[in-house]
């Protein structure tokens, strides 16, 4: 039995690099989302940044961890608990992909029903101040 195959150095390097790239991409997209949440002018546009950036960045970071933990499995003395960690991480991914847009939509709907007016351009290029009034 080759002991060297258990921790193949090259494979570890490749897997770790993929994981690092995924996590860094996720952090980059989260940065964009955070800047959007801070800068965008009204609730609806902020929701664009929050909803999309949140979904993809969580997805990418957790995917990166799934890849990393897949690389940590010792295939020679295999225990199911190690693989279950990866499966659970993928389950979190699927869960986030389903629920995060739904939560975004629910919050959007609640805000719209409550009469928060979306801001729109006037004739010129200036933005109208968001006016908020109860609609009933």
């Amino acid at each position: 039995m080759l002991k060297g195959r258990r921790r193949n150095f090259e494979d570890m390097i490749i897997i770790n690099t993929i994981s690092i790239i995924l996590i860094l991409t996720g952090l980059l997209f989260f940065f964009g989302s955070v800047v959007g949440v801070l800068r965008f002018p009204d609730f609806y546009t902020r929701m664009h940044a929050a909803g999309k950036g949140d979904t993809l960045s969580s997805l990418l970071v957790i995917m990166g961890f799934a890849v990393y933990h897949l690389g940590q499995i010792h295939w020679m003395d295999f225990v199911w608990a190690d693989l279950l960690v990866v499966i659970k991480l993928l389950a979190i991914c699927a869960f986030i992909m389903l629920t995060s847009p739904t939560a975004t939509h629910a919050l959007m709907d609640a805000g719209y029903e409550d009469g928060i007016e979306p801001l729109t351009h006037k004739k010129g290029n200036a933005l109208r101040e968001p006016k908020v009034k109860g609609r009933g």
Binding site: S33, A50, D54, S58, L107
Partner: peptide, 17 residues
């Protein structure tokens, strides 16, 4: 956050993270 729902959105983002 000017409106209450802005705060809820922020809490939601923080919770996911």
């Amino acid at each position: 956050g000017p409106t209450a729902i802005d705060r809820i959105v922020a809490v939601n983002v923080i919770g996911t993270k």
